[in-house]
Design a protein around this nucleic acid. Structure first.
Lengths: 250, 250
DNA sequence: TCAAAGCTAATTGTCGACAATTATAGTTCG
DNA sequence: CGAACTATAATTGTCGACAATTAGCTTTGA
């Protein structure tokens, strides 16, 4: 196999992977144990609403459904609990987390705090290569409208890619773990369940580019401010939609 | 039993509990299952360094030591993983988390972000009763120097009480869970292992009272700013100490 | 002598069964 | 008729054993 052929195969594989599970974390480690695989399957099912939010989880039933023993399933449930997708009460059982408006707003408040700080840290700690890479990604996204099919999909992916790159750029393991490993599963769940493929795309793009500029200037304070505004704008956008809907219902 | 007697007993019980496990979270739910109890015991052992940081955990050994089956011990390990006190690699095993200076600083950066936001939310969401309660606590701490024994102890407890009250005052379940349920176990671990009964007590006290003032004025922006400075000051204090020690070693 | 391969021992992951707790349905009493 | 109690069924927690994987040591070959 020539190197050119090898590269082609690699890019094809990457494309397939991106399409099959495009919204997964960059922190995700590939599942080696069966509990891991079951965890991922249930995670997808919860995020996409195949298992209803707020519903009770029957251990024997799910174990049978996924063809594993109850111990293995419990192991999977433990990981789901770690990323706040299920809650467990001792001697009572597990429930899928509920999606409430209050919960959604609390999540955005928390994101504002954490990602704001991550952005400040990114301005301080990102390598020059990482910054170049991020600029390249952004300019690629700006010319990506010719990808006719699945525009909303690519918008969401573009947004996530940007945020992930900033978070990883903080080089702060604590922040990375909290945001990518825990919060973002919930974010994705809310996006799926509330059908939030936000129509803020164009504005978000210009906000993204200003944030990158601040990071590139190594201006941590500005970078944090802009990221917080960016997330707060999303939150207010949601609040407005809710207020609108309430007005219609009255 | 008269009501007066009942009250006396209650206060005595509270005092005992406070002394036995004074530094525990307000979010802690009492252990009902044996896995819970084992979890708490190992947690204490890790935080206080009885189980060395960075050391490998042998499941069979610990199971025998705590007189439980390996499944139960694994359940406990899962909860320890949830509060970032142990890390697990599939098919390899669990290790107690390492205490590094980098990790400590990352932890404080994260606290700054989260507690800063919690403080802003507290200014917006705390009830008047909660504010009164917090002011009372502060004035009690200011006159508590007559508690001769264990000054450092009471200083630490006072500091934690203050922070807990602010965090709970945010009324944001996400923030409360992240900070109290996860970060603070690590904070306590670092405090124990690095012997950090900070000598910033007097300055910290005045900082606390200014924060409460801002909350009382419902000035969220100022409250956040002051809390972030308060935590950043702790961090810088640590950084200075480390720099000092490095100079001595050279 | 050093590196690599193979083997043994120990550790982790998974399973099914039993014990303890909780939920449910039926019954009885006021 | 409704509320409280009781007995049964179902679910969760815990246990010990087996399978799969990894680590350490010995052996073999260059």
């Amino acid at each position: 196999m020539t190197y050119a052929e090898f590269s082609l195969v690699c890019s094809l594989i990457k494309q397939i992977v991106d399409n099959v599970m495009p919204l997964d974390n960059p922190t995700k480690t590939l599942a080696v144990t069966t509990a891991d695989k079951v965890f991922e399957q249930i995670q997808h099912a919860i995020v996409e609403g195949d298992i209803l939010a707020g519903s009770k989880i029957s251990e024997p039933e799910l174990a049978k459904q996924y063809q594993v023993s109850r111990s293995t399933l419990r192991e999977a449930l433990n990981r789901l609990e770690k990323c706040h997708l299920v809650e467990r009460k001792p001697n009572v059982g597990s429930r899928v987390v509920e999606c409430s408006i209050k919960g959604l707003l609390e999540l955005y408040i928390t994101r504002e705090a954490l990602e704001g700080m991550a952005c400040r840290q990114a301005a301080e700690n990102m390598t020059d290569e990482e910054i170049v890479d991020m600029k390249a990604m952004l300019s690629q996204h700006s010319t990506a409208q010719d990808l006719q099919d699945g525009v909303a999909y690519y918008q969401e992916k573009g947004d996530l890619d940007f945020h992930y790159k900033v978070i990883l750029g903080s080089h702060n393991a604590q922040l990375i773990n909290l945001i990518c490993g825990q919060l973002y599963h919930l974010v994705r769940m809310y996006r799926c369940q509330f059908g939030m493929n936000s129509p803020r795309a164009s504005r978000a793009f210009s906000e993204h580019s200003r944030i990158i500029e601040a990071i590139s200037d190594r201006d941590g304070e500005l970078a944090e401010l802009l990221m917080r505004r960016h997330i707060a704008a999303s939150r207010k956008n949601i609040e407005n939609k809710i207020a609108e809907q309430n007005k219609l219902n009255q």
